[in-house]
């Protein structure tokens, strides 16, 4: 049963990903990106990480995809579907990516992956919160400063120049 759900989610995710990179219309690509992000959130749920899945939906589906759609609409006039969407090196890129995928698939299927059995359905989220406040409090603060810097930087970069 879980395997069937996993296969359905993976097909949706990977199909959406292919649509994101090959679609001629960038706006449609952004909508397919939402499908991919929701599919990955479903995979997180299968991995028993509901908090990560929720954060994924909130930040990626809620914020980042909205930002991307905004940017597409602000720059839409020049990127209509009649224009070429691939550059000259797309065939070479496809070869390189297929080669990399082949190497990774061979490596992953050949290797032995030992698994630690554990029941994580309860207690994983409180532990994460506690660790974020104790063990990882410095990275957490650095992340906060990074977000603030990125916010200010984005505003400064995108602002209209004063006449």
């Amino acid at each position: 049963m879980l395997q069937a759900i996993f296969i359905v989610l993976s097909v949706i995710t990977l199909g959406g990903a292919v649509a994101v990179v090959t679609n001629k219309n960038v706006f449609h690509s952004a909508l397919f990106l939402v499908v991919v992000l929701v599919g990955v959130a479903g995979l997180y749920l299968l991995l028993e990480a509901p908090f990560i899945a929720m954060v994924q939906v909130l930040i990626y589906v809620g914020a980042i995809s909205t930002l991307i759609i905004f940017a597409i609409m602000l720059t839409r006039r020049l990127m209509n579907t009649h224009q070429r969407q691939r550059n000259e090196q797309w065939l070479l890129s496809a070869t390189v990516c297929l080669g990399l995928l082949l190497v990774l698939v061979v490596l992953i299927t050949q290797a032995h992956w030992p698994v630690v059995q554990a029941n994580v359905s309860e207690g994983s989220l409180p532990r994460l919160g506690q660790d974020l406040m104790e063990r990882y409090v410095l990275p957490l603060e650095v992340a906060a400063v990074l977000l603030l810097a990125a916010l200010i930087g984005a505003i400064v970069i995108a602002r209209e120049r004063m006449p």
């Binding site: 990903a17 994101v20 960038v26 390189v96």
Partner: peptide, 28 residues
């Protein structure tokens, strides 16, 4: 699945002409 997703995103980064398309591939 993660390896396939990464390779698809890499292809998008290398072959897209639209800058927003490249950013979307980086998200992948």
């Amino acid at each position: 699945v993660a390896a396939a997703l990464f390779c698809i995103g890499l292809y998008g980064v290398l072959s897209r002409r639209n800058a927003v398309g490249i950013l979307m591939s980086i998200e992948l």
